[in-house]
């Protein structure tokens, strides 16, 4: 095969032109095309699965939170821990009406993820014994333009059945 043959040369050149167009597009495109931020709930070993299904009143439950920032800039996040039921779950636009029991605050750089081992109290009264409650984790971010904390619309929940503390 003679590389200097007109047809062979044209094919090689065409491949190079297409390759260079894609490479230039890759270099010039905006750094972040689809910004997002996420929260994940993991078990006490910081792994997916094997979540506790039953909890005692007043118990401190160990869980793990996974936070990931791909917004293109450092983001100050708050995870608000609330206890609710099916009726008081957050939505994509509104947070849960229940009060925050604990707040975890972290600063995440762009493309950074962290796992946060946490202990959350099961702060409910005895009327919840035998019922299922939702442990709600809402993700809030600090909006520098509004100078305020805003609900990101992202949350996670874990349903657990409440048990009474056994008498020793």
């Amino acid at each position: 095969m003679n590389i200097l043959n007109d047809e062979v040369f044209a094919v090689i050149l065409a491949i190079m032109v297409i390759g260079s167009i894609f490479s230039v597009a890759e270099v010039l495109q905006p750094r972040i095309v689809e910004p997002f931020i996420s929260i994940g709930l993991l078990n006490e070993e910081c792994k997916i699965g094997d979540y506790p299904g039953e909890v005692f009143i007043g118990e401190n439950l160990t869980l793990c939170l996974l936070l990931y920032n791909y917004m293109g800039y450092p983001v100050l996040v708050q995870v608000k821990y609330k206890i609710g039921t099916n009726e008081t779950l957050p939505t994509n636009t509104t947070p849960s009406p229940r009060p925050a029991i604990m707040i975890f605050e972290k600063l995440l750089d762009h493309n950074e993820n962290i796992t946060l081992l946490i202990q959350v109290p099961i702060a409910v009264n005895k009327s919840y014994v035998g019922k299922e409650i939702a442990l709600i984790f809402e993700l809030w971010i600090y909006d520098v333009n509004q100078d305020n904390w805003v609900y990101s619309g992202i949350w996670n929940q874990l349903y657990v059945k409440v048990l009474e503390v056994p008498i020793p």
Binding site: I12, L13, S20, V27, L28
Partner: peptide, 13 residues
Amino acid sequence: IAASIISIPILFY
């Protein structure tokens, strides 16, 4: 970098 990449096929030609 973009200009260098564009110049590769031209230089090749």
